[in-house]
Simulated scan of single mutants.
Amino acid sequence: MRPFPLMLFAAGFGTRMRELTATRPKPLVPVLGETLLDRALNLAEDAACAPVVVNVHYLGGQIIDHLAGRPGVQISDERAAILDTGGGLRAALPMLGPGPVMTLNPDAVWRGPNPLSLLAKAWEGDRMDALLLVKDRAQVRGRSGKADFRLDAEGRITRAVDETGSLYLGAQILRTDTLSAMTEPVFSLNRLWNRMIAEGRAYALPYAGDWCDVGSPEGLAEAEAMLREGG
């Protein structure tokens, strides 16, 4: 199994974290003494991802300084203009290289198998353009609202319309071939997902471990409680 390149999305404003991100970017918020970004990078190292690219925008200098002593991590600098997930991934492609890439949102905490390793083992490039890690909406922590996707018997996804279904956990493998066809500088990866869903080539892998969104102070407290439960 070859290593996958990994894009870590660390450019967001983290406004739902309120005072916790007034003077620092959300990826540098600590969870039980370890920053969200370092937790994500540890997952990447354990899954042998290479290269690893981190994009930055809001208070991006702090992230650049934080990563200065971490070998093998490259910076995609979006401090001039934030590009959203699609534009950000396209801007980082010269560093990530051709072929499918992994992406990971660092604003979550995992307890269980390494999500990146699971994706790498389940990837079937002959029939997949995207493989998203998901969990049943009723079993996730730190997040409310409707589900993202529904899965058929073979794991293909369609969009959910209510709270019934699965939530995207912020980890995936994605083909990037069609990114060059996007003319806008700023766009979401939802554009690619919609095309891949329509073509029947977007799949999901259910995650059996625990996961908690760290998008708010309440989510942070729930994530720390989840980790303490696991010792």
Rank of each mutant, 00 (worst) to 15 (best):
L36M: 10
L37H: 00
L37G: 00
L37W: 00
R39I: 00
L41Y: 11
L41E: 01
L41S: 03
L41A: 09
L41K: 04
N42M: 05
A44F: 07
E45M: 07
D46C: 08
A47S: 01
A47V: 04
A48C: 02
C49I: 05
C49S: 09
A50E: 13
V52C: 06
V53A: 04
N55S: 15
N55Q: 11
N55A: 13
N55Y: 01
G60A: 06
G60D: 11
G60S: 07
G60H: 13
D65R: 14
H66Q: 08
L67G: 07
L67Q: 08
G69Y: 02
G69Q: 01
R70V: 11
R70L: 09
R70Y: 12
P71D: 09
G72C: 11
V73P: 01
Q74P: 00
Q74S: 12
I75P: 04
S76V: 10
D77K: 11
R79M: 14
A80K: 13
L83E: 08
L83T: 08
D84Q: 15
D84L: 15
T85F: 14
T85E: 14
G86D: 12
G88Y: 12
L89T: 03
R90F: 11
R90T: 00
A91C: 01
A91N: 09
L93C: 05
P94T: 02
P94K: 12
M95P: 03
L96P: 14
G97I: 05
G97V: 04
G99P: 06
G99L: 10
P100Y: 13
P100L: 05
